[in-house]
Design a binder for these strands. Structure first.
Lengths: 340, 340
DNA sequence: ACTCCTCATTAAACCGGTTTAAAGAGGAGT
DNA sequence: ACTCCTCTTTAAACCGGTTTAATGAGGAGT
């Protein structure tokens, strides 16, 4: 409760000027080693930690990074990606004394408003650009705002920002090959909204791999990554005159919901219908039957993104893109040979 | 990209002093209306927004609130509470120009370290104390750190902080009465870790209601709120010589995992076994069979908590506790009459 | 002994706001 | 015409750091 010590207190105690304390703290050359020791000792005795606020003002940095997420429960709630991603980000930030500022955009406004607010308030030194879209308007906006960023996934247009990528395709290819290997020929897909880069990446990998096997999709339904969307799409697929014997979902939430829909329709999974998801969310392992899915590592993704963004923020030019180990197939009980 | 205007620019343009601009902006009395208008017009023309950093330094406030969450994927990942809660918090903060700072504590450290860091860095003006524990040591810590807080749930010890509560008991009572009404007499519970206030609240409400019906629990297993824990607990219950005909889980994740475990054991839910959860998470509605559960409103919880914490932060003394509408029962297909 | 350099240190300005104490301008009262 | 008040406005200090330009102290060179 007693007032925290300031740099002036430390200077007084060490018998030097404020400037010297600042130099010592920041390891600037030009101070005698003995003086540095004296200052650091004094700082230590007083338990002094430089004020973030003062530093922020004088060096014009926020020492914080920002993440904008949409309030839409569909995207936000129970999405297994963000929590782990955030944990990975924090694991980097905490070692650097940085903070993570969350900006949730509410239903009424556009996601861009979130970035605008962060920039306007100068709350952060850089932001993560997640759920990248095709011709993503946010890239131009951030350039305009002068806010450094890192994109999660590689944008298709020009981008001045480094990209941290995790290739979804090998996992998708593996799922399709797994299904084809089991003997399926009537395979359908529930894709994510085509506006998202990762949704179409998974989607085209799916179609291409099928084509390579001489097959084509029974149908491609578009879901919105929510459980409700998964249910809808599944019902449409099952109502087809010749329904698929296997369905590949663009994420686990839709897959688990689809699993429920199939069971509710009286189908046995996997005997009547094989189901595969994407994400390897916590529940994937524990539903019945266990969900065959594709596992990425959002924690590492967060780490890599934070490190990369910090290089940009630190003024590093030409920060290279980072490519993470690709997502890989996890086979569980929800996939089996098709019915005869 | 051009430098953003400062208060000095506005002052110059309006032909007044910096101080007057500050007064006008903050609606301080003592300025002629005409002057205020002139200043606001100048500010508007320049598109000036006061610098948060400068304001932070001079008024010693961060204009931000903090939320500490543990990195433990068990608590963090796919927990339906936090995302919605955070959205509610943000809906209040965004109207006040405040930010939400997330502090994730990594595996190696204690949750207290998270609060300590937030306080040390003076990053926030107050924090949310979630997942309250019995004799929660964080309350003393925050008092010591001089960091204002609001507790989510009412602590059992003394606390100088207002509490925002959402009574889980009515929902729990309703679940038990629902099961008893269906004819169940062999009811078991998978409780949360007893260290948590909300876990024991649900647990004792469960036992008390059973007792009021002249019954006692077949067994009470303790889970850890994770899907894996739900599986474990369920297996133990099903292995009992006289297994329960209904299981009440302290959260949906354990319940959905338990549902999977029961189905994997060859049981039909709800014919052989009724299952009820708690949270009404997104998937609860879509698994098969739909999960009977208890619904709270984490978004409102977040709103109320943010508003209450802000009152404390603003220096309001004796901020009253806030009681939210209680959680309520949602009946779906996973509960039915017990087997004969 | 005197100049010149280098190295260590400091005083002061600065970041962009808020706040306090004091000054200035009018108007009323006598 | 002079004093006294009230209402506006401002100059300057302050928040707690960083940074630049200047100063001071030794030591080497001649």
């Amino acid at each position: 409760m007693t007032k925290r010590p300031t740099i002036a207190d430390v200077a007084r105690r060490a018998g030097v000027s404020k400037g010297s304390v600042s130099f010592a703290l920041n390891g600037r050359p030009g101070l005698a080693q003995s003086t540095v020791d004296k200052i650091l000792a004094a700082a230590d005795e007083l338990g002094w930690r430089p004020s973030n606020r003062a530093r922020s003002l004088s060096v014009s940095k926020a020492f914080a990074l920002g993440l904008v997420i949409t309030r839409d429960p569909a995207v936000l709630s129970s999405d297994p990606f963000f929590p782990a991603f955030i944990a990975g980000v924090e694991s980097v930030l905490s070692t650097r004394g940085q903070a993570l500022v969350l900006q949730v955009v509410t239903a009424g406004e556009s996601e861009e408003d979130g970035y605008r607010r962060l920039a306007q308030d100068a709350r952060v030194d850089g932001v993560f650009l997640s759920d990248l879209r095709h011709d993503d308007p946010r890239i131009g906006l951030l350039v305009e705002l002068g806010l450094p960023a890192v994109t999660l996934n590689r944008p298709d247009g020009d981008s001045p920002f480094p990209a941290v990528t995790l290739d979804d395709r090998p996992g998708t290819v593996a799922v399709v090959e797994h299904l084809v290997g089991l003997g399926h020929t009537r395979i359908a897909q529930v894709a994510g909204p085509p506006a998202f880069v990762h949704a179409t990446a998974r989607s085209t990998a799916f179609t291409d791999t099928l084509a390579a096997a001489g097959l084509e999709p029974v149908a491609v339904e578009t879901g919105d990554f929510t459980a409700a969307g998964g249910i809808e799409a599944t019902r449409r697929l099952l109502a087809l005159p010749e329904p698929p014997t296997a369905i590949f979902y663009a994420n686990d939430r839709m897959a688990i919901a689809g699993l429920g829909a199939a069971q509710a329709a009286g189908l046995n999974v996997p005997d009547d219908l094989s189901i595969a998801g994407f994400d390897d969310s916590e529940l994937a392992e524990y539903v019945h039957p266990g969900l065959t899915t594709v596992r990425a590592d959002p924690f590492r993704f967060g780490e890599a993104a934070a490190r990369t963004l910090n290089r940009v923020v630190d003024g590093d030019t030409d920060v290279p893109d980072v490519e993470l180990p690709p997502a890989e197939l996890v086979v569980r009980r929800s996939t089996a040979a098709p019915p005869l």
